[in-house]
Design a protein around this nucleic acid. Sequence first.
DNA 1: GCAAAAGTGTTCAGGGTACACCCATGT
DNA 2: ACATGGGTGTACCCTGAACACTTTTGC
Lengths: 228, 228
Amino acid sequence: MNKRAPEKMRFAALATDVVLCTVLDEKLKVLLMQIDLPPHYKNTWALPGSLIRPNETAIDTAKRLLADKAKIDPKHAYLEQLYTFSRIDRDPRNRVVSVAYLGLIPGSRAAIYERSWPKNMKWCDIEKIPSLAYDHTDMARTAVERLKSKIAYTNIAFGMMPEQFTLTELQELYEAILNKELDKRNFRRKVIDIGLIETVKNKITGVAHRPALLYRFKSKKSQIIDVL
Amino acid sequence: MNKRAPEKMRFAALATDVVLCTVLDEKLKVLLMQIDLPPHYKNTWALPGSLIRPNETAIDTAKRLLADKAKIDPKHAYLEQLYTFSRIDRDPRNRVVSVAYLGLIPGSRAAIYERSWPKNMKWCDIEKIPSLAYDHTDMARTAVERLKSKIAYTNIAFGMMPEQFTLTELQELYEAILNKELDKRNFRRKVIDIGLIETVKNKITGVAHRPALLYRFKSKKSQIIDVL
DNA sequence: GCAAAAGTGTTCAGGGTACACCCATGT
DNA sequence: ACATGGGTGTACCCTGAACACTTTTGC
């Protein structure tokens, strides 16, 4: 068990890259970091990535990336496998096959984590993503497509909400991801009818208007549902 | 470009396995082949698989598998990446990470290809899949889930139909995959309304009943549509 | 003419969409 | 009292689901 494969079987390195998304300031954002690997990439923006280690599965690597590079506790994030990129020249240096992950984190936490980051790391508005290293532009595009698609028929958005939230906040999340406005009354009826959220006794306080009821998810297990 | 990664970066081999599905005799089936690799697997059924070669991407390997192992022209099959399996002990011998593909082929062709196969290769009813080598049981289950799920909202079923077909044949495909009966009138109205198929001038001949109109797909490009 | 599958419309219920006003709080 | 976002109900339309009989061919 777990012997290494014979040398002749191993010609490519294996990596994992994470497209970590959040909604901040009502915009869908992606975590980017700058890499400095001349001659190909000099201070170039890229997704956080790492080689998979011998004792890790791909998702283990994704979790380690969140923890080590962004100081994000993986318990705070949702991760799902996105796609495996195997183009032969995707890394100009060596043959590297990458198992990409889609990650989601609540905007409230994203803002806090950001404060502990160095300059070469940031949340980047998906409308303003610069040209990225490797095939990371493809990865980011694939992730955003997946997210937009899955938000309409699964509860995946739950990975981007804090423990407690108002219905308006939930609606703003959907609007940011889908990039269109939704009807308030229809949205509220729908999410309540689905039955995956419940009210908390508390109301929000300290706002200069009628305080909103707080809700939480009954379960965070991923499910297929018809959200919108 | 395309240099090999340094030795220390390479600890795992990379493979591709294909879950090739078809509908034959109104049953959803998967291509299995027997492998004989003592001591772990002695005449054990498995999915067709191979290591990825240095000059191949993952999908290149999937196409080569179809051609070499099953003598299937990859042009006759639809292939999409399914999931990457990276459990550390998934191969009891060596560390191997596998990029699994979902493949589809029309039943009419599946029946023909089958005749050229040796004894250790067969279409297996998905209800009767034996215990498979490696984590191939997981792969097969994942593929069938994906297929059942995507058939309801994409035109993926098109990959399993011959050039020309009757609406009844198309309906039988859906019924076999979803494992439930559909209403004839509603089904026909729906697929015609969607507008992805058109009639061919010919009718089917030589049947002891009213001959059915033949249809074909206007396009085989994969699309998101609301089929059922 | 009989067997066997092809082909065809209508009704009903439920869900999605569009839309406007009063409520509770902080200042 | 006023500004700000919170919270609520109804009417219409469209889609999905249920359902039975006539038509065309081969034998």
